[in-house]
Design a protein around this nucleic acid. Structure first.
Lengths: 130, 130
DNA sequence: CGTTCCGTTTACGTCAACGTCAACTTTCCT
DNA sequence: AGGAAAGTTGACGTTGACGTAAACGGAACG
């Protein structure tokens, strides 16, 4: 069924802008077929884009993603390749967790401040009522 | 005891670079005394810097922070002022929480992937052993 | 007196991931 | 044929929070 997709179809399917897809192509993350000037995105491009978006969600940089994607393309050295990916992913996971911890701390601190602010606001109101 | 501090003392005390302090001055977040060319940071500057760093931790932009700081300086309209700060803080808190939720989701997803990766790695090892 | 250190100013550079705009060409629809 | 719609390229802009470099001034030390 699905053979190739136009840029617009891709945009709709993945909720990205055309600019983004061209940008990814320029960065060598995608390799759509060029029929004349038009781009045609294959199943492979779709698979890659899916991985790209996932990678972004995990906080990988596009450069990191490109390298990982390239590893998959080379296809051989399966062990080395998967291992590398695994390592990177672990690093990312650690980063994300520490980020979340920091965020959690900041959230708690900000909550404290808000509580303090509420008290002060209450004071001011009482004051104004007199 | 502590009256004014030099730029270096400030850097050491707050763990920032001179460039940062000058940058904050340029952005009108700090107003050190100028003795000739030298900057001398007062107690007020220290209080402001403390708030700045806290604000950054909460994800406020420097511009937001500047405005809030200015409100405090004007000093009157205490209610309006505190209220504004309170509102902004609430927005930030909401943002931070949703960010954390997204992060938590991504962490879980990445954990899944890692688990999957481990299985595949185990397979490859078994394969290599034969 | 020389050197070294701390300080200053101005201005430009950096990084990521695109957005925006202009000026074209190509394709589709009527 | 004519005009909109969709596509293209290339160049430059954006955002935030500084970093870096150049070129200079004054003072403290030995």
């Amino acid at each position: 069924m699905s053979k190739v997709m136009t840029i617009r179809e891709m945009c709709d399917a993945f909720d990205v802008t055309p600019r983004t897809l061209r940008f990814y192509e320029a960065k060598e993350l995608l390799f759509p077929i060029r029929e004349g000037q038009r781009r045609l995105f294959t199943k492979r491009d779709r698979a890659r884009l899916k991985l790209i978006l996932q990678g972004k969600r995990f906080g990988f940089s596009l450069e990191d993603i490109r390298q990982l994607l390239d590893l998959y393309d080379m296809g051989d050295q399966q062990f080395t390749q998967l291992n590398r990916t695994y390592e990177l992913a672990q690093e990312r996971l650690a980063d994300m967790i520490s980020q979340r911890d920091e965020l959690t701390g900041a959230i708690e601190d900000l909550r404290q401040q808000l509580k303090w602010g509420e008290e002060r606001l209450a004071e001011l109101k009482r004051h104004a009522a007199e």
